[in-house]
Every structure is written in C-alpha cells, then in structure tokens.
Design a binder for these strands. Structure first.
Lengths: 163, 163
DNA sequence: GGGCGCATGTAATGAGTTACATGATTGA
DNA sequence: TCAATCATGTAACTCATTACATGCGCCC
C-alpha cells in the first residue's frame, strides 16, 4: 500500500484501537523504511499523482509477527477517559449531574447507531466492529445504571427536605 | 493535596482513565499554578520533608467545573489497543491464534481477580471500579466468543483436510 | 470554474516518558 | 542497617499533533 491508502485503511478499520493522523503515517512509514522493515518504490496508476508504494521486508515480517503474538497473548486494557468525570460527580448537584448523564446517554446511543449502519467488513475486521457494538451496548446498560443511581439520590434528597 | 499525594490518588483511583507519571504530575501542577488555577504553599507535618501543598483558586474552580460538565455530557470513547491484533489474526495459523487467545483470556481473568480484591472505594470512586468490573466481565464473554470462533475455524480446516 | 478528495510531505509545537539527581523517614 | 517509600524536581528524549505547503484529478 501507499501512505495515504494505509492511513485511510487504519482510519476506516482500526479506528477503535488507534487514532493515526495522516502526517504521522507518512513519518512513521519513513522511519520504518530506515529500520529496514519496509521497502518503497514509486508507482503511478493512470494519470494520478506518483505514489510511494511500500511492501514489507523479511525483517519487517519478523517484527510484525512478534508484535502480533505479543498483542494477542497479552491484554492491554482500554482506557476510559469518560470515567474521569464520574469520580467528581459529587462536585455538582445531583439534578445537574442527571441532566448531563442523560446527554451522555444520547451521545452513546448516537455512536452505537453510527456503528450499526457501517457496512460489514471483510474477515476478522468485522470482529472489531462487533466488539465495539457489544462494548457500546454494555455502556448503555451502565449509563442507565448511573442515571438510576443519580435519580434515587435526588429522591432521597427531596424526602430529606420535606421531613 | 501535595504533588506526591495527588499523583498517588490518581494512581489508586483514576487508573482506569489516565496513566499519570509522578514526574509529570509535578510538572503539570507547576503549569497549573502559572495559569492561576491553583496556589501552593510549603507545609511540614512532623519530621517529614517539606511538601508543596496546593489548593484550587476561583479561576481553577471555573475551569474545573467547565471540564467536568463537558466530560459528563459528552462521550469520549475508550480506545482498545488489544483489538489491533484481532485485525491481523488471519496472518497466523488458527491453532496458534487459539493458543494466544487462551493466554489473553487468562490475562483478563487475572485482571478481573485483581479488581475484585480491591477494597471498596468511597463515594462515586467506587463506581469507577464497578464500571471496570462490568467491562472486564464483558471482555471475558467476548474473548470466549473469539475462542469459539477460532475453534470452529480449526474444526472446519480439519474437516476439509480429511475429505 | 471551483471545491473536494487524493497524495505527499516539512516545521514548529506540544505533551509525556525515562532517566537522572537528591535526600529524608519508616519499618523490617 | 538496609530497603522501601515518601517527596520533589530537572533534562534529554521520544512521540504525536497542528499548521503549513504543494499540486493534480475528478465531478458537479
């Protein structure tokens, strides 16, 4: 593949695991070439501009499968930036917290809707999509739980007030 | 809090959402002080070394609640580095893939066991833990699904071979 | 003809990590 | 007494982003 194509592939298929910018893709490919992991040659299709097409070298294959085996056998946990706010939920009123969490729920639903509208991907790439869908489904259950907890906190406060 | 205390707090409570190194914590606190979001003063308890204790300023409060509201209402999805390998599962044999995925399952189980042994956290901090537990539970279901798919792929290959 | 997408890069900047440097206290 | 933990920071380095720069082809 050439740089643009590769960056596009990652954008469309590996969105859930990385967020690689195009400029960085070119930079990284160059570095990989310097490391001897890939080789490049210029190619032209039709009247399109010249493209630098890369192919992997034996040394690159070795590094790749080593990384692949490592990735598959270990488990590098996901990081949840959305949980940071939860830790400080007590810093605002329960009523406002509830309002904000309802907004978040909509955001999750929209994301899930987006995902389900994506056409099926080939091979194991589809598995990534299904994983995301399963995950977001659980996230919906979780946010409902959070909303429920916040609502019962509000009820409790109202009760305390009326006594 | 002072820098060490704060970095420790994040390490113990916000592990799921960030991975802040101590040296960076000090650096960030200094930058926040320059921005006028926090103020510091030296303090000493007993014979312990001098500590720089920070407290938030009104300007800091404002930035904080703004960020908090933003975080709670939006949904910044988690990133799954572990999914990258899945995309290239076809690059190795199904038998080896299965072996590696079984290792990964153990890693997930161990993580989940670790989590369940952590003592209860105060307030909404406990919610982060519960979220992680719910998430890892789903991850176990998912990896079982992956293992199942890989096993049926192997069975299919053996059948093809014997025909 | 004009805007979008294709296609490649560079330079400045920003953010975070690692390694380094230091020294005191506490508990085994 | 010796290692671990508390406590704070600096400097070099790595890594990625943003903004910039360029130019062609395709489609409306």
């Amino acid at each position: 593949m050439h740089g643009y194509q590769l960056a596009d592939f990652i954008d469309n298929n590996l969105d859930a695991c990385t967020d690689l910018k195009k400029s960085n893709a070119y930079f990284l490919l160059e570095k990989m070439e310097q490391s001897g992991w890939v080789q490049s040659q210029m190619a032209q299709t039709g009247k399109r501009p010249q493209r630098k097409v890369y192919c992997i070298t034996p040394a690159g294959e070795e590094v790749f499968t080593k990384l692949l085996r490592k990735n598959l056998s270990e488990y590098s946990s996901a990081i949840f930036p959305a949980d940071a706010g939860l830790a400080f939920l007590d810093e605002i009123s329960s009523a406002e917290g509830l309002e904000l969490l309802l907004l978040r729920k909509e955001a999750i639903k929209n994301r899930l809707d987006e995902l389900t509208s994506i056409p099926e991907h080939p091979g194991t790439l589809q598995w990534l999509l299904e994983h995301q869908q399963l995950f977001l489904g659980t996230e919906l259950i979780w946010i409902d739980e959070l909303i429920g907890r916040t609502q019962s906190k509000i009820k409790l406060q109202n009760k305390d007030l009326s006594e």
